[in-house]
Amino acid sequence: MRIQVVHCHPLTDSYDHALFRVIVETLAASGHSVVATDLYREDFHPAMTESERRSYMGNDYDLRAVAAYATTLKQMEGLILCFPHWWFSMPAMLKGWVDRVWGPGIAFTYDSGDAHLRPALHNIKLFGVVTSYGSPWWIVHLFAGNAGYKVLMRGMKPLCARNARSFYLAHYDMDHSTVRSREAFLDKVRATVSRL
């Protein structure tokens, strides 16, 4: 399977970067064709341009500046996002990748009949998320309503193939994590990815 792993963290010595390496290495060891996209190391520019915004509300989106990213996404069969949740949301650079790359003609098309979106990422048959939260589970879910999960699994995943497989793995309470909790989560990620 052709799988893109999109990673977003400024530090290469971070736990999230270690998760990224484990995902990429495990996929490769299982025989998958892997495209490792490290947004910080690639110096991705998250801010939508004026031209992109002006062309966004239709099917003539100006994707010239992100054409390579769009082409990669359309060639994949699977996508795994690896990033930390900051303020209960994805980092700005990853949000910018979504804003700019998951545009009209790439992730969806506008139906001119009633102006709704039609999914266009029929090629993506696997949608996975590996993430971390500084807060414990109960704050993320009960207090904050787990907004990040909803964006990913209710907003983005429906633009993929109708029966796309998915998984969502999260290490909660990173602010109080231990070597044991981090190693256990790494093992969980490795085991999940190895079964793909």
Score class of each variant (00 low, 15 high):
residue 1 M to K: 03
residue 1 M to L: 04
residue 1 M to G: 05
residue 3 I to A: 02
residue 3 I to P: 04
residue 4 Q to C: 12
residue 6 V to T: 11
residue 6 V to N: 06
residue 7 H to F: 13
residue 7 H to C: 06
residue 8 C to M: 03
residue 10 P to Y: 02
residue 10 P to R: 01
residue 12 T to K: 08
residue 13 D to W: 01
residue 15 Y to Q: 02
residue 16 D to W: 01
residue 19 L to H: 10
residue 21 R to I: 08
residue 22 V to I: 12
residue 24 V to K: 04
residue 24 V to C: 10
residue 24 V to W: 05
residue 26 T to H: 06
residue 26 T to R: 05
residue 27 L to Y: 05
residue 28 A to C: 05
residue 30 S to H: 12
residue 33 S to G: 14
residue 33 S to P: 05
residue 33 S to T: 14
residue 34 V to M: 11
residue 36 A to T: 07
residue 36 A to M: 09
residue 36 A to N: 07
residue 38 D to I: 03
residue 40 Y to A: 05
residue 40 Y to Q: 04
residue 46 P to N: 05
residue 46 P to K: 06
residue 47 A to C: 07
residue 47 A to H: 10
residue 48 M to Y: 09
residue 48 M to F: 09
residue 49 T to L: 14
residue 50 E to Q: 13
residue 52 E to N: 09
residue 53 R to C: 13
residue 55 S to E: 10
residue 56 Y to L: 13
residue 58 G to R: 11
residue 60 D to I: 08
residue 62 D to N: 11
residue 62 D to C: 11
residue 63 L to P: 00
residue 63 L to K: 08
residue 65 A to E: 07
residue 66 V to N: 06
residue 66 V to M: 05
residue 66 V to C: 06
residue 67 A to W: 02
residue 68 A to F: 02
residue 68 A to G: 03
residue 69 Y to E: 05
residue 70 A to T: 01
residue 70 A to M: 02
residue 72 T to Y: 03
residue 73 L to E: 03
residue 73 L to F: 05
residue 77 E to R: 15
residue 77 E to H: 15
residue 79 L to F: 07
residue 80 I to G: 08
residue 81 L to H: 02
residue 81 L to G: 00
residue 82 C to Q: 10
residue 84 P to Y: 09
residue 85 H to D: 04
residue 85 H to K: 05
residue 86 W to Q: 03
residue 89 S to D: 11
residue 89 S to A: 14
residue 92 A to N: 01
residue 93 M to I: 15
residue 94 L to G: 00
residue 94 L to Y: 00
residue 99 D to F: 03
residue 99 D to H: 01
residue 99 D to Y: 02
residue 102 W to I: 03
residue 104 P to C: 08
residue 109 T to R: 11
residue 109 T to A: 09
residue 109 T to D: 10
residue 111 D to A: 10
residue 111 D to P: 00
residue 112 S to V: 06
residue 113 G to N: 12
residue 113 G to K: 12
residue 115 A to K: 13
residue 120 A to F: 13
residue 120 A to E: 12
residue 122 H to N: 14
residue 122 H to F: 10
residue 122 H to E: 14
residue 125 K to Y: 08
residue 125 K to G: 14
residue 126 L to E: 02
residue 127 F to A: 01
residue 128 G to R: 08
residue 129 V to I: 14
residue 131 T to M: 04
residue 132 S to F: 05
residue 134 G to Q: 07
residue 139 I to S: 15
residue 139 I to D: 15
residue 143 F to V: 13
residue 143 F to A: 13
residue 144 A to H: 12
residue 146 N to G: 11
residue 147 A to H: 07
residue 148 G to N: 03
residue 150 K to V: 08
residue 150 K to G: 06
residue 153 M to S: 00
residue 155 G to I: 03
residue 156 M to I: 10
residue 157 K to C: 09
residue 158 P to Q: 10
residue 163 N to S: 14
residue 164 A to S: 15
residue 164 A to W: 12
residue 165 R to Y: 12
residue 166 S to C: 10
residue 167 F to G: 01
residue 169 L to V: 03
residue 171 H to Q: 15
residue 171 H to G: 06
residue 171 H to Y: 09
residue 174 M to G: 15
residue 177 S to F: 14
residue 178 T to V: 11
residue 178 T to N: 12
residue 179 V to I: 11
residue 179 V to W: 10
residue 181 S to H: 11
residue 181 S to G: 09
residue 181 S to K: 12
residue 182 R to T: 13
residue 183 E to V: 10
residue 185 F to T: 01
residue 186 L to T: 08
residue 189 V to C: 04
residue 192 T to L: 03
residue 194 S to V: 00
residue 194 S to R: 02
residue 196 L to T: 04
